[in-house]
Design a protein around this nucleic acid. Structure first.
Lengths: 211, 211
DNA sequence: AGGGCACTCCGTATTTACCCTGATAAAGAG
DNA sequence: CTCTTTATCAGGGTAAATACGGAGTGCCCT
């Protein structure tokens, strides 16, 4: 059996070293190259003819997903496994849209990583269970996975909410009815799929809607 | 020479495995335990008598820095090296204040990690160069770092609030009375001088109490 | 010209958050 | 051994948020 040729793309030398050390134990794998940045990956991938590329998302210069997109343009047969700590729907969707063969969180066990690599090598796909959850939800709810845009007026309200103002105060400040403010708040709760204002603030900050 | 006994605390099994594999090569080190959460770490540390604890900051239940503070109360001789991806001043300051012996970013080379461990073991301290930069900056800015009146239990509640859980749900999860959860929430509102939970979440994130 | 969207507003009902006043036990600090 | 802090719990109350229904206006876009 030929060894599976891998390229690792991650900007943390320590983590690369860890993978190298771990995957090196398994004779089925051979790491033919390592890249610290997306740009390095672009060069390496054409040069080394790897079977599978393990790539983190947040790597410098060109991020992992964009690097994947570019490489697939050149060689559509390249296979990518996204290996990251980001469990946000946006990333997952983008990865799937662009034909990633795997999406794993870094909190998986080494055995699962090996299984994923094997599966992808044999022509399959392998996604973390949570990816399936995200997809299942979106199918059931028929919701758009990319979060709907928060409108300008809603954002105005949001800022005041984050400032500790009550609905009544916000209504007074914006010179509109309390009902209207309630509508804006409820709409945002629905759009961001959260239970209450606390979670709304948290998520809004995560999504960079709020400073 | 005795081997240096280490405990690893990181919530990513893959990363722990990487460290184990890498540090295991060097006969000077011995990993006597691994923890996935801050709570696990508390148990392990008293049990295993490690020389040095390598700890990530963002680990579940109790974060790495708080776990360190707790453990130092019990045994002030324990040595900690913070090993994380967070380069924000707040974290660095808190780590230094609480007597961390090292602060490294995960993007260091393995050789540097080994050097850091050796240095700390021999009674020294080892900080990434960037730590000095951050300190220099924050001295000028005279920023707010002193709002650390929030207790551990309160922080637990806070995390659940930020997660969109209601007081009732939180009470159920923590197996305490609704009244108690209310107390914790109200205490935090007073301590941080905010009007409601929305502002609480916002401020907590600003103050790096919440991720 | 019609469809979509943002913004506005309302009724009713339930749930939750917040405020005030307490209390007790445990544990650490001085 | 006090003093303080933390974590626990309680009654009784008001205000606010959330949930579930709608609906009208104006604007932009094709």
């Amino acid at each position: 059996m030929d060894r599976i040729k891998l390229i690792l793309a991650d900007d943390h030398p320590l983590i690369r070293a860890g993978f190298r050390s771990l995957l090196g134990r398994n004779k089925a794998f051979e790491i033919v190259g390592e890249a610290e940045t997306g740009k390095e990956l672009l060069l390496l991938a054409s040069e080394k003819a790897p079977d599978i590329i393990l790539v983190d998302i947040t790597i410098p210069v060109i991020n992992g997903l964009d690097a994947m997109v570019q490489l697939k343009k050149i060689n559509p047969n390249l296979k990518f496994i996204i290996l990251t700590m980001h469990d946000e729907a946006g990333y997952v969707i983008k990865a799937l849209k662009n034909g990633a063969h795997g999406y794993l969180l870094k909190n998986i066990e080494i055995a699962e990583l090996e299984k994923a690599i094997q599966t992808v090598y044999e022509g399959g796909k392998y996604f973390s269970p949570f990816v399936t959850n995200i997809l299942a939800e979106s199918v059931n709810k028929q919701t758009v996975i990319d979060h709907e845009e928060i409108t300008l007026r809603e954002k105005e309200v949001l800022n005041l909410v984050a400032d500790g103002q009550s609905t009544k105060q916000i209504a007074a400040k914006l010179k509109i009815s309390i009902r209207t403010v309630e509508s804006h708040r409820l709409n945002m709760l629905k759009k961001l799929e959260v239970n209450n204002s606390s979670e709304l603030i948290k998520k809004a900050i995560d999504l960079k809607i709020l400073g």
